Measured scan of single mutants.
Amino acid sequence: MAASAHGSVWGPLRLGIPGLCCRRPPLGLYARMRRLPGPEVSGRSVAAASGPGAWGTDHYCLELLRKRDYEGYLCSLLLPAESRSSVFALRAFNVELAQVKDSVSEKTIGLMRMQFWKKTVEDIYCDNPPHQPVAIELWKAVKRHNLTKRWLMKIVDEREKNLDDKAYRNIKELENYAENTQSSLLYLTLEILGIKDLHADHAASHIGKAQGIVTCLRATPYHGSRRKVFLPMDICMLHGVSQEDFLRRNQDKNVRDVIYDIASQAHLHLKHARSFHKTVPVKAFPAFLQTVSLEDFLKKIQRVDFDIFHPSLQQKNTLLPLYLYIQSWRKTY
């Protein structure tokens, strides 16, 4: 089996927390979720979201995140109150960019949308954001926290390059993509939290790379249903696996070995980020709550012996909000 052949990389499970039942964490995340308004986002309300009498641009960002990046939404709820709305805006910006690729039928249209967001970032730093909910909220975040323009532009530029429907040539190319998107998002989150620390940035770099790799793995069944495969070609070739094997949902050992190798790289990034947690300011830990969902996925895929098409991998963990709150309460990542 794939797991038994390579099992030495995987460390002990961390979500089991001995003695936790003896201490009762304060009510927090679930209460916040219940208090949030929840009407559906419609095209009509989106168009009017920044106008008078609408929910408001902040509510639009929150709803977009809740629907399109639920794990990011849950993590954002546990940030300090003064930072929450800015991170909602930042993550909503990322969602807007991420959904361009799947929402257009022609690359030219995707490039036009990316050009809109490039100009939007430029206009935000000229205090002239367009009348668009996410743009307005992002402008507020930039003004409030003096966010670095370079990180925002890196996210747009990398998403634009990724409009080509090509597999990553190697794991390094996937890591570079993750660094310029997910890690950049974390650098900006640290700025919102008021953290300027080399060790925190180092952790953000590795956690962002782990996030990018896990996202690529999780999306494999969806991409396969659209006749697309984006997994690193070098690892596929190493194990003699073709793109057609993934399109046919082949579950042979060599296919699972490909998934094992890729998942192991995410695991190593996560492990390395945690190896120097004592040197990272505690104030930075809330920015890294996504490690909970990353670890949850890596454990699940290990349990199914790296069968990327196993139905259990597509099921939401209903206990994730609780695990996130516990992680926040324990002040760790």
Rank of each mutant, 00 (worst) to 15 (best):
S45A: 08
V46T: 06
A47D: 04
A47R: 15
A47C: 15
S50W: 06
S50Y: 13
S50C: 12
G51A: 13
P52N: 12
A54E: 07
G56N: 15
T57H: 13
D58N: 08
H59P: 07
Y60Q: 06
L62Y: 14
L62N: 07
Y70M: 09
Y70I: 08
Y73W: 15
L74M: 13
C75E: 10
S76F: 04
L77A: 04
L78G: 06
L78V: 10
L79R: 02
P80M: 03
P80C: 06
S85K: 11
S86E: 05
V87P: 02
A89H: 00
L90W: 03
A92L: 04
A92K: 01
N94T: 04
E96W: 03
E96V: 08
L97R: 00
L97P: 00
L97M: 08
A98M: 05
A98F: 03
Q99L: 09
Q99H: 14
V100M: 11
D102S: 10
S103V: 13
V104Q: 11
V104A: 14
S105A: 15
G110R: 07
L111Q: 09
L111G: 15
L111M: 08
M112I: 11
R113T: 08
M114Q: 06
Q115E: 15
Q115K: 09
K118G: 05
T120L: 06
V121F: 03
E122P: 02
D123A: 11
D123M: 15
I124H: 01
I124D: 00
I124M: 07
D127V: 03
N128M: 13
H131R: 12
H131E: 13
V134P: 03
I136M: 12
E137G: 08
L138A: 00
L138E: 02
L138V: 12
H145R: 04
N146Y: 08
L147M: 07
K149C: 05
K154F: 04
D157V: 11
D157K: 12
E158W: 12
K161F: 08
N162E: 07
L163C: 11
L163V: 13
K166L: 15
I171H: 04
E175V: 07
E175W: 01
N176K: 13
N180G: 14
T181E: 02
Q182L: 09
Q182P: 00
Q182T: 13
S183K: 03
L185W: 00
L185P: 00
L188M: 09
L188Q: 02
T189M: 14
L190P: 00
E191Y: 00
E191K: 05
E191D: 06
I192W: 01
I192F: 02
L193Y: 02
D197M: 04
H199Q: 09
H202V: 05
H202F: 05
A204K: 01
A204F: 02
S205E: 04
I207H: 02
K209T: 04
K209E: 02
K209A: 03
I213D: 02
V214H: 03
T215C: 12
A219D: 05
A219M: 05
T220Y: 03
T220K: 03
P221N: 13
P221R: 14
G224K: 12
S225L: 14
R227G: 10
K228I: 12
K228N: 15
F230G: 05
M233I: 08
D234K: 02
I235K: 08
I235C: 10
C236Q: 09
C236F: 09
M237S: 10
L238W: 09
H239N: 09
G240D: 12
S242W: 03
D245Y: 06
L247S: 04
L247I: 12
R248S: 06
R248Y: 04
Q251H: 12
Q251L: 15
Q251W: 13
D252L: 09
K253V: 14
K253P: 14
N254A: 15
N254R: 15
R256N: 07
D257E: 07
I259S: 03
Y260M: 07
Y260D: 05
Y260I: 05
Y260Q: 06
D261W: 06
I262M: 11
I262H: 02
A263C: 10
Q265R: 13
H267P: 04
L268I: 11
L268M: 10
H269K: 01
L270N: 00
L270H: 00
K271M: 11
S275H: 08
S275C: 09
F276E: 06
F276L: 08
H277N: 06
V280P: 02
F285K: 13
P286R: 07
L289W: 07
T291N: 04
S293W: 14
S293V: 14
L294N: 04
D296L: 09
L298G: 02
L298A: 01
K299E: 09
K299D: 12
K300P: 00
I301P: 00
I301W: 00
I301R: 00
V304D: 01
V304L: 11
F306G: 04
F309L: 06
F309Q: 07
S312W: 11
S312A: 14
L313N: 02
L313W: 05
K316D: 07
N317G: 09
N317T: 15
N317H: 11
L320G: 03
P321K: 00
I326H: 06
Q327G: 06
T332P: 03
Y333P: 01
